[in-house]
Design a protein around this nucleic acid. Structure first.
Ligand SMILES: [Mn+2]
Ligand SMILES: [Mn+2]
Ligand SMILES: [Mn+2]
Ligand SMILES: [Mn+2]
Lengths: 224, 224
DNA sequence: ATTTTTTTTTAGATTCGCCTAAAATTTATC
DNA sequence: GATAAATTTTAGGCGAATCTAAAAAAAAAT
């Protein structure tokens, strides 16, 4: 059960795309992996051979159970390494994705379980995404998009669904990070922008695009 | 300046073989890398193109300055990761080589410098081998083979030149590890075996083969 | 100085992951 | 329902890294 870096990247990409749409298209994969559709088709045939995916020409692709298991192992490694890089080595959360993209392919199972232990078995990575455990179980994290937060209700930032340097730069400008308490004080119909308070500070305005990538947790009956 | 894992493994192997013999043969490389001489010749041509080595057909191979620099960077990564695995994750020193063989190819320079910092800038890896610094300077470690230690002189084990599980198993059986104090109490002409004391304990006998792989440090004038 | 042996290189193939260009199929539009 | 557009697959090829078998060169032995 040892797969190439390339195959592992395909499996992980299919896993992520399945979250949006349960059947993944060749083009979507090509876009995600920055490769060409023809190359994707080639690879899908091989992954199908190895029973990591269900694939029929023109019909799109789905992970098999073993494909899913593999995807979760890779994601576990990715997120644990990201946590290590931020918590132990002091990297910024926008720098770690690229490095973890390499580290996630280190094969030793023992390594990753020891690392997990060393890090104190964290539940989420620096971007707030859940870390699957050794058995591949993903901790369920209750979160809703900031866009859906009612006015006047306080909530904590749990995760961000975009990790580009530009996006994280903007967050840093607003002094928002994972764990920061947010409250919507006003909504503007025209552009759907939001006025919010950050950590109880003065109100600031953020765009709908930004808010769409912020996920928060709040108790439903909690008023403040 | 980004090279494939395979090329990096060749460069590192050439570096190590150069320590024995300044001009490295195709066969020696094939043996070291567990590959075929024909494959080595192919690769030597490419490394020569990229000016990592000096290579002329039938004349053997040597690293260029940039090849040497690259080798030291890879060795630095390898040994820092080994240190991390033993000191932070609690691996045994016989388990780490294989994992480090993968980790040494992770490309981020910033990662390795942060790791170095995090580990407290160690001077040697778990096998006692020196760790090159960020500039590629290898700390000089004074050591001599245990075979050359005079009878009755105490010395500390500094490094081992063989890291096979079998060898480390034997060392563990004798309760010898890096830092252990050894003293030769007798030499036997017949098979060149040695009688030694370990950490001042009762005398035990070790073979010439084992002793040849043990390197110790002792002050020349130190009698005990 | 030949001959034999060993080492090294060349020739030709294979697998992997990728590409472009063209063909096939599906989906959308009139 | 025919036609146009988009998606997907096939065909053919390429570079990297490997291999086996054969040829060439160097080293060792007689
Ligand atoms: Mn990756
Ligand atoms: Mn992440
Ligand atoms: Mn390696
Ligand atoms: Mn080592």
């Amino acid at each position: 059960m040892k797969y190439s870096t390339s195959k592992e990247n395909y499996i992980k990409a299919i896993y992520h795309l399945e979250q949006e749409d349960p059947v993944v298209s060749t083009n979507a994969l090509a876009r995600q992996l920055a490769t060409k559709p023809a190359s994707v088709t080639d690879m899908l045939k091989k992954l199908n051979e190895q029973e990591l995916i269900h694939y029929e020409p023109y019909k799109g692709v789905k992970l098999t159970d073993s494909g899913n298991k593999l995807a979760l192992q890779i994601i576990r490694k990715h997120r644990l390494w990201e946590f290590f890089l931020v918590e132990k080595l002091g990297f910024g959360w926008e720098e770690v994705h690229e490095i973890a993209e390499e580290l996630e392919h280190i094969s030793s199972k023992k390594l990753i379980d020891r690392l997990d232990e060393f890090l104190g078995k964290p539940k989420t990575d620096p971007h707030g995404d859940p870390i699957p455990d050794a058995a591949g179980i993903v901790p369920k994290i209750e979160k809703r998009c900031l866009l859906d937060l009612p006015i006047g209700v306080s909530a904590d930032l749990i995760s961000v669904s975009n990790q580009s340097a530009d996006m994280l730069d903007l967050l840093r400008h607003h002094q928002i990070e994972i764990g920061t308490r947010l409250k919507i004080t006003n909504r503007f119909r025209f552009d759907h922008s939001l006025q919010i308070t950050v950590q109880g500070g003065p109100p600031v305005t953020i765009s709908e695009q930004l808010a769409a990538h912020l996920y928060v947790a709040w108790a439903k009956d909690e008023t403040d």
